[in-house]
Design a binder for these strands. Structure first.
Lengths: 105, 105
DNA sequence: CAGTATCCGACGCGATACTG
DNA sequence: CAGTATCGCGTCGGATACTG
């Protein structure tokens, strides 16, 4: 790695990019407890605007961490859920949090 | 956590903030192999400018990950090294990289 | 209800020139 | 050698209003 030193293909950089967005960890946390509709996520993260929430959800979906299921009803209903890949992230996040408790407190 | 949902005190957010800067992981990697002078770091990460390198080093120092030792000579000499705290981060970074290899490849 | 469409400001990062 | 000092730009996130 020291020869190239291009952080683009650094595995750590690539991994934290998955959940590096401003609200992504929070969204993942909310969805880890339950499948949720768009509005339900908003209620649990009041500070986020619709535009930004939409963006973060789209990116999480593009990275395969969450799934989006649209029911063709009126009024519309959309449900977001963690994918298996998204769930696989949880142990890692717990490890990171554990590191902090141990090394910082 | 779901009650507050303020990511400021999220342990994962706080932890990745330590090495979240544009070049910090690379700098930590360079210093993990050896104590290095300012110019030596620059040679190993050619794409970084002096200004940004200085900024990232100052932040890493402020967070206690690296140490800065200034020798009062002419021409000036400054040596950067990982602190014990900085070294404690390495296993975590290895874990993150391992997660990627296992779950993405 | 679940989004788009605009507009905008802050910040991180970069390029370049200068200095003790 | 190891930095500062400026200037500037792109991207991310935020505020607000509108829509199928």
């Amino acid at each position: 790695m020291e020869n190239e030193l291009d952080h683009a293909d650094c595995p750590v950089t690539a991994t934290i990019a998955l959940f590096g967005g401003r609200w992504k960890l929070l969204i993942l946390y909310v969805l880890s407890r339950n499948t949720r509709r768009f509005g339900e996520i908003q209620v649990r993260i009041p500070a986020i605007s619709k535009k930004v929430l939409t963006e973060q959800l789209r990116e999480l979906e593009a990275d395969g961490l969450i799934s989006r299921k649209e029911y063709k009803e009126l009024p519309p209903r959309v449900e977001y859920a963690l994918t298996d890949f998204g769930k696989s992230l949880c142990p890692l996040l717990i490890d990171i949090a554990a590191w902090k408790r141990k090394n910082i407190g």
